[in-house]
Design a protein around this nucleic acid. Sequence first.
DNA 1: GTCTATACGAGGATAGAC
DNA 2: GTCTATCCTCGTATAGAC
Lengths: 214, 214
Amino acid sequence: MAQTKTEKVKKTKPVRDAEATQAAILAAAEAEFAQHGFAAAKTEAIAAKTKVAKSMIYYYFQDKEGLYRAVLERSHADLLQAVQKLDLEQLSPEIALENFLRSLLDCVSRNPKLPTIMFHEAVQNQGKYYKKSSSENIDAFLIAILERGTAAGVFRAIDPFQSAINIMGTCLFYFIGAGNIQQFPQGKRLLSKAMLEKHAAEAIALILAGVRQS
Amino acid sequence: MAQTKTEKVKKTKPVRDAEATQAAILAAAEAEFAQHGFAAAKTEAIAAKTKVAKSMIYYYFQDKEGLYRAVLERSHADLLQAVQKLDLEQLSPEIALENFLRSLLDCVSRNPKLPTIMFHEAVQNQGKYYKKSSSENIDAFLIAILERGTAAGVFRAIDPFQSAINIMGTCLFYFIGAGNIQQFPQGKRLLSKAMLEKHAAEAIALILAGVRQS
DNA sequence: GTCTATACGAGGATAGAC
DNA sequence: GTCTATCCTCGTATAGAC
């Protein structure tokens, strides 16, 4: 038994190995890219946060770009997964909309870096690093709901395309602004659990009241 | 007369001089910073757009940072001016809100780069390059309107602070997303005059319906 | 005021030992 | 797999002529 144990441990000294470091790099990268976007992010800063050598980034992901792509991939997959499993077509437009919003807000509340990551990608790189097919585009789900609702007359006569963007803005801007809004007098912690729940409630109420036919 | 004319023109050969170049630099910088933010922006790229030598940037503004500050200053002043001259306190909450939104949307429609500039400043630099006093903070105006409206019972029982953020998001997210949303199938030109007007109308309608006591 | 040429530092990426 | 040391490109900023 002592034999096998020694066998297993053998010459292996490293404190961390394999996927553990890879995950650590991904997490650190997510934070760095969320704040700075691709171009302004520094691999050195990512490595510093991880406490592993900078060269590990190039070992696991070939590039800074490779790492960026991995972060983007994972973020988008998270969002998509949250929405795809909802069976939205089976539900009435109002319920579908509410469920969609709740899932969306739940997802980004768990990962508040997500909106800024996507924002940077949109503005700085015009989406060149992540070509999403229209079928896996989250907005498409929302647009579909809005179209059904207006057709059925339960929603006002809104433009589904424009309103989809505006509704996303209502939900996500909070996270984008969270950075400097924290500089507010009262020093509210915008990302605390209580505030996140309040935000979700407020956003959903605002949107539902906004689209509903009165 | 020929005398004075010659006097004025004298040895001056340069095609462009003085404030003209300065303005050109500012305009180019605005575009560059809007897309990339401070850190990722390149003075070389700015100079290239301007067709004046890179060193002119350092002649007029000392730094890349000096240039950035100038852009920030002007952008924020634009926004503030649009809102300050509205006499919002004199109006009923609903009218005040509508006027506020219309002015805001009008301002950013004229200068669509503004939201992304402020966004980058917020996320990347956490507002360190532009400390705005709370008195000259645009959100404060909106919060005040919402507080009045809820107190008077003409608005729903919303949280003024959270709702102010969400409302700003409804108006501004459009411009932030404009970059990669243009990749949409139909290739809608989000910044065309017609689309901008439609956006303003849709956003205002959505918000008013969203906050109104029904 | 405007240009060209260049010094200098920061940061991405690689080599090679362990 | 993980580290240290190093290379090299790119971009900010300055010097100095016109």
